[in-house]
């Protein structure tokens, strides 16, 4: 107790005039920190994007105006990379939305073992992504010893080299396994805010489970679905570790997404100018999704305030 009192800073007898001023300015250090660490690098990215700087040939660096941005559209690999990015992110978001919805509905009931089931189901989201990727690649997808192949062969099925035969599908499976719990948790929070009375009233009116789902549950969950989908798109677009560990973007460029291509431009070809220009596109894309997300969350809080 005495140590506690000793460590109390002595209160000034005169009330300092700037006391509440200080209380109003406590966000300054954090804002300055974020500007320095996040906004200044973006400015640099923009500056680099107008040069042809290559770390392997720094002597030839010059200003090339919009050449790198033109390259983005004329690069023959780009249609494949864009397609990969879309297939990758949309299928993961769609699958995790479907499975997450099913699991949330199943968990939104009272039963013994519910807490345990929820705990087990969120665990894939908590496992370090590189651990998940290494585990799936070696222990589940391996054609010779992997659990999936061994099981299929033991029941007379084919031995499949998952990662080499279906590279994109394999990565989508891993990432869906990781991200379904995220969607499940958001939708479960939404379901728990839905009053059971609505459902009971609909049941009395003779509505079946499908009607209740389509006309009561889905409309109620709309905002939760929007938030979950947009946030997951933002996170999934940044996915790198799972691709790096399983396929390194291959075979050829079959699993190279925009994020992975920027990494390859920067750290395999050392093409600073071009990777920066592609990075600018990634930043713009993320900002568009973020703005939509913030619109939705803000409209939500306003609705809540109006309702209150």
């Amino acid at each position: 107790m005495s140590t506690l009192q000793n460590s109390v800073p002595t209160t000034g007898t005169a009330r300092p005039p700037d006391k509440s001023y200080l209380r109003q300015k406590l966000a300054r250090p954090a804002i300055i920190y974020l500007i320095v660490l996040t906004q200044i690098p973006v400015v640099f990215t923009l500056i680099y994007s107008f040069s042809n700087w290559n770390l392997l040939r720094p002597d030839r660096t010059r200003f090339v105006a919009f050449q790198n941005f033109v390259d983005f559209f004329t690069n023959p690999d780009m249609p494949v990379i864009i397609r990969n990015t879309l297939v990758f992110s949309l299928s993961i978001v769609l699958f995790s939305l479907i499975f997450g919805m099913m699991l949330a509905l199943l968990l939104n009931r009272q039963f013994r073992g519910r807490g345990l089931a929820r705990t087990l189901l969120i665990t894939p989201f908590l496992i370090m992504p590189t651990v998940s990727a290494v585990m799936w690649k070696n222990m589940l997808f391996n054609p010779a010893f992997g659990l999936i192949s061994s099981f299929l062969v033991s029941i007379g099925g084919p031995r499949i080299d998952w990662i080499n035969t279906y590279p994109m599908f394999s990565i989508v499976v891993i990432v869906t396994w990781e991200w379904t719990p995220f969607m499940m948790l958001i939708l479960l929070a939404g379901l728990q805010s839905l009053s059971q009375e609505y459902i009971e009233a609909a049941q009395i009116d003779g509505a079946g489970p499908i009607e209740i789902f389509l006309y009561i549950i889905v409309p109620h969950l709309r905002r939760y679905i929007e938030i979950g989908v947009l946030l997951e798109v933002l996170f999934v677009l940044n996915i790198f570790g799972e691709i790096f560990v399983t396929t390194t973007g291959g075979p050829a460029i079959d699993t190279t997404t925009l994020t992975f291509d920027i990494y390859k431009e920067a750290f395999l070809r050392w093409n600073i100018g071009r990777s920066s220009a592609y990075g600018v596109f990634a930043v713009i894309l993320a900002n568009i999704v973020t703005i939509v997300f913030l619109r939705i969350t803000r409209s939500g809080t306003q609705q809540n305030k109006e309702a209150a």
């Binding site: 973006v42 990215t45 680099y48 790198f240 920027i262 990494y263 990075g279 930043v283």
Partner: peptide
């Protein structure tokens, strides 16, 4: 929400 690939080079 800033994508890390957008700032990794600088």
């Amino acid at each position: 929400m800033l994508p890390p690939v957008g700032v990794i080079v600088p």
